[in-house]
Nucleic acid binder design. Structure first.
Lengths: 145, 145
DNA sequence: CTCAATTCCTATCATACAGGTATAATTTAT
DNA sequence: ATAAATTATACCTGTATGATAGGAATTGAG
């Protein structure tokens, strides 16, 4: 019952991009220094975010990444689901194909469905802009975090 | 972001005991047949439950396990936390010793704390008795599930 | 007392995933 | 051209998960 580092780091990376959302491209090197995550690991994470259309990339010198939309148009849930897959607590609640044989008469299923719902509702209630606001508030306008 | 089979099976096992809560001891063999889980795997799970004082065991012929308290005195959260550890979404939120170095100025921490709270509040809002009611309702008094 | 049922204890094993490193190819701005 | 950056791929190590298995110890019933 844990969020993996990929999901956590993705959130911090998107937050970093939101705090430096000037329109210019931000290099992974800069993000790496601010966040204390190796460039190599960030590459793996940002590749997924780019494929999902969450960030735009620019190759070459002065290249890097920037947000594809405005910070208020991402929820934390959007970002986490891209990295972690759906946020359902058990496999039975994912796509129907690999449906559990007991599902028709599984009396615990509604309980798990309820848990999946509160989790997804919560993470979708927080936007990237709100996280950025929180970061600016805590850092007193020092966006290095 | 998944509950492991240990947690899921523990819940089904406790539910099975609740549905057969006659005061007599229930053998793992019986539970195994009803739940489709091997006796050997059930042993591992019930050992944890017994150490936590959630079930009482009786050795020897006609031995087995029974609930230590009434079904309404367990929450699903009690059972899951015993098997899964605390249900916090990230390690930073566990015991203070291995505290993250960034925690003092981590602007994402409140978000994760909020997620941990909705998860724990939800699982603590459902009792074993309520799960048993649901099972009896769905099975029409056939407690085999 | 003995036997059978059952808990208890300790291994073992395969697989998957997490977390991270390394190397090299390709693209682009200047 | 060349430097900086992305992109792709492959590899590595450790740990957790999801089981299975063998056997010892305990107990109740006959």
């Amino acid at each position: 019952m844990k969020i993996s580092t990929k999901g956590r780091y993705a959130l911090r990376m998107m937050l970093d991009l939101a705090l430096h959302n000037t329109g210019e491209y931000i290099s992974l090197k800069d993000i790496s220094q601010r966040q204390g995550i190796t460039v190599k690991y960030l590459e793996q994470i940002v590749t997924v975010l780019a494929k999902a259309g969450f960030v735009h990339s620019q190759r070459g010198n002065n290249g890097g990444y920037r947000l594809a939309r405005k910070p208020e148009d991402y929820t934390a849930g959007d970002i986490l689901r891209v990295m972690e897959g759906n946020l359902q607590p058990i496999a039975c609640l994912e796509a129907d194909p690999n449906e559990c044989a007991r599902s028709a008469y599984c009396s615990v299923l509604p309980f798990w469905q309820g848990l999946g719902k509160v989790v997804n509702d919560y993470v979708d209630s927080v936007t990237l802009e709100e996280l950025a606001d929180q970061a600016r508030f805590m850092a007193g306008n020092d966006y290095s975090i």
